[in-house]
Design a protein around this nucleic acid. Structure first.
Lengths: 153, 153
DNA sequence: TTTTTTGCAAATACTTTGCATAACG
DNA sequence: CGTTATGCAAAGTATTTGCAAAAAA
């Protein structure tokens, strides 16, 4: 899975402890599968897909099923123990090419535009960007709960 | 489709002209379907999905098919006439919660981390963000062609 | 007229769900 | 022991592809 530790062992233990705390706090049981799936994502720097996690976890737990991986990744995201890269499920398109950011509501899925306010400076490219390759597009996504959903409780 | 013009008519005409130029430049034919699909996305501010575009276009062209919409949206993205919100196809996960950006290679799909360089200031939240709702996560994605793919030509 | 594109239908990829059994607390 | 989570199988979305007919240049 092209993964390597990005932290020493004690650090991983700390994260595993945090994982267990989060589970208990949410009333979720600390199962072998959840622990192994969490450990796998926590140790990888390859931004794995559900399938990759599945393959990796299977090496230690040959009976784990893909749907458990999906369910667990969703729980871990819910507990803020990992994050999802990009937007999931279906693709959405934007015909407005002017620089702007998106606010994505994680509850209703709605996407709102945030245009720069008058006089606001454009976001600078991060310093390390050039080394990665040729940047053609910048996509800034803020995720949270939109006003409308907050009102609905 | 909850769309409204975000520009006057002359502006749209200019964009349609640019669309036709881009097609010719790429050797793609300017078909009724492509024109209508482009116009639909260009006029919408709703970040439509392929399905939404399909429904909207069908009102003017009852025989258009969903796969043509998919194919056309891909071409339009290729020509930089629209952009895709978030990442398409499959979900990917990141267990590293430290603030960092992602470089996504649009050719090979690989995702690379960009961590802030020593002394680099964190990116400021855009001014308009607060009005949208409660921001829980910031996701900065740079898209382009990675070094490895550039080398492969 | 020649080549590209379309629409149809079918295939594929990704993700989710219902249900009986197994595992946690 | 009571309840939650798992694995299996099957269903549900989202997207892609092969091919004959239609449209663009």
């Amino acid at each position: 899975m092209n993964s390597h530790l990005h932290e020493p062992k004690e650090e991983l233990d700390k994260r595993l402890a945090r994982f267990e705390d989060s589970c208990r706090q949410k009333g979720l049981r600390v199962t072998q599968q959840r622990r192994e799936i969490f450990r796998t994502v926590a140790q990888s720097s390859a931004h794995p897909s559900a399938e990759s996690v599945f393959v990796a976890v299977r090496k230690k737990m040959p009976n784990v099923s893909l749907d458990t991986v999906y369910r667990t990744l969703a729980s871990l995201e819910e507990m803020d123990l990992l994050m999802r890269v990009g937007l999931s499920s279906k693709a959405r398109f934007d015909g407005d090419l002017r620089p702007h950011c998106h606010f994505v509501c994680t509850r209703c899925g709605e996407v709102y535009d945030i245009f720069p306010q008058p006089g606001e400076a454009p976001l600078p490219l991060p310093g390390g960007a050039r080394e990665m390759g040729e940047v053609r597009q910048v996509n800034v996504q803020l995720r949270g709960i939109c006003k409308k959903c907050q009102a609905t409780k």
